[in-house]
């Protein structure tokens, strides 16, 4: 199957996932208990995404490769905890700023500046 077909299938499947509930169950009345659960979707999913992207990374194996035989890194597919470093410190600073200001713009600016400065050190 061609890459284009797979991309189209993934797009159609994603559209079904996104639209199934908002079209099929649009008229259904939400009870207070379900409503409470739905309000917890964002913090649960986002915290999982932060944990996955901040704390975990794929392990890399180094090998000689390429046309010139240079040292290249290749993913082994193994998921390991990222070693403590600039990302963790910058993320902690950004979280503090987010909590104090609740501003997405300031949080992104502080976080990116912090990680650049920490990488320079």
């Amino acid at each position: 199957m061609s890459a284009l077909t797979m991309v189209i299938l993934a797009a159609l499947g994603s559209l079904v996932i996104r639209s199934a509930l908002v079209t099929a169950l649009a008229g259904v009345t939400i009870g207070p208990r379900v409503g409470r659960g739905l309000r917890l979707v964002a913090p649960s999913v986002l915290a999982g995404l932060v944990a996955q992207t901040l704390l975990i990374q794929e392990s890399m194996s180094e090998s000689m490769g390429g046309s010139t035989g240079e040292l290249v890194g290749e993913s082994t597919g193994e998921l390991l905890f990222r070693s403590l470093g600039s990302w963790h410190i910058a993320a902690a600073m950004a979280a503090l700023v987010a909590w104090r200001t609740r501003s997405v713009a300031i949080t992104l600016a502080v976080g990116m500046t912090a990680v650049w400065l920490l990488e320079l050190v």
């Binding site: 995404l49 950004a94 909590w99 997405v104």
Partner: peptide, 15 residues
């Protein structure tokens, strides 16, 4: 790093 940072910036106000 922009990826976890963006999710973090969304996460904190949702708590």
């Amino acid at each position: 790093f922009a990826v976890p940072l963006m999710f973090l910036a969304l996460l904190v106000p949702s708590i």
